[in-house]
């Protein structure tokens, strides 16, 4: 009996017809693709795109103090920082450069920065004809901030990116913890 059924299935191409019915029914549904250059998908908040140096609203200069923590943390070691001292022995950042072609966009620099001075923007269409266009100097990075992240957008970006906050820290019962030691004191 089973073999007869199988035989009928074979000669009438049942499984092939089922597949064809499925593909035919898809003809009448909405397209899932986008016409990319014309229709762009908005990037999600916190997207890791091109870099920017945060411009301080009060001074109008960069927030960066040149502590080099981002350069120390960077897995691909593509951040170069050169600093010097002015007359009052204050550290000034002469050059802050990122080699974008070497960057892997992990976002560790943002995580490391203790001043919130660097960010990744939502801009991802930065192709160019020359390699020079991908060597980001301080001025370029600051203008990136003005172009893509200024205002409310930048604030919202950091709120998402600066997790984990202190309430996110905890631990399983058996593990010795900082907080427990502090509470015991």
């Amino acid at each position: 009996m089973k073999t007869a059924k199988e035989f009928l299935k074979t000669i009438f191409f049942i499984e092939i017809l089922r597949g064809l019915a499925l593909t035919l029914s898809r003809l009448f549904t909405h397209a899932v693709t986008r016409r990319y250059p014309k229709v762009k998908r908005p990037a999600q908040p916190g997207f890791r795109g091109l870099h920017a140096l945060v411009r301080d609203r009060d001074t109008g200069k960069e927030k960066c103090v040149g502590c080099c923590l981002c350069a120390a943390y960077c897995p691909s070691q593509c951040i170069y920082i050169y600093t010097s001292e002015d007359e009052d022995h204050k550290k000034i950042v002469d050059r802050y450069e990122i080699e974008v072609l070497r960057c892997i966009f992990c976002g560790f620099c943002v995580e490391a920065c203790p001043f919130g001075a660097i960010s990744l923007t939502e801009h991802y269409e930065y192709s160019d004809y020359s390699r020079d266009a991908f060597y980001m100097t301080k001025e370029r990075l600051l203008s990136n901030w003005d172009k893509y992240m200024a205002g409310q957008k930048g604030e919202g970006y950091f709120r998402k990116f600066w997790r984990p906050m202190s309430e996110d820290f905890g631990t399983p019962e058996k593990q010795a913890t900082w907080r427990k030691i502090q509470n015991a004191k």
Partner: peptide, 12 residues
């Protein structure tokens, strides 16, 4: 995140 300051980066 585990609260082990010796090994885990402090809260932002």
């Amino acid at each position: 995140m585990a609260d082990v300051p010796k090994y885990v980066l402090p809260p932002k």
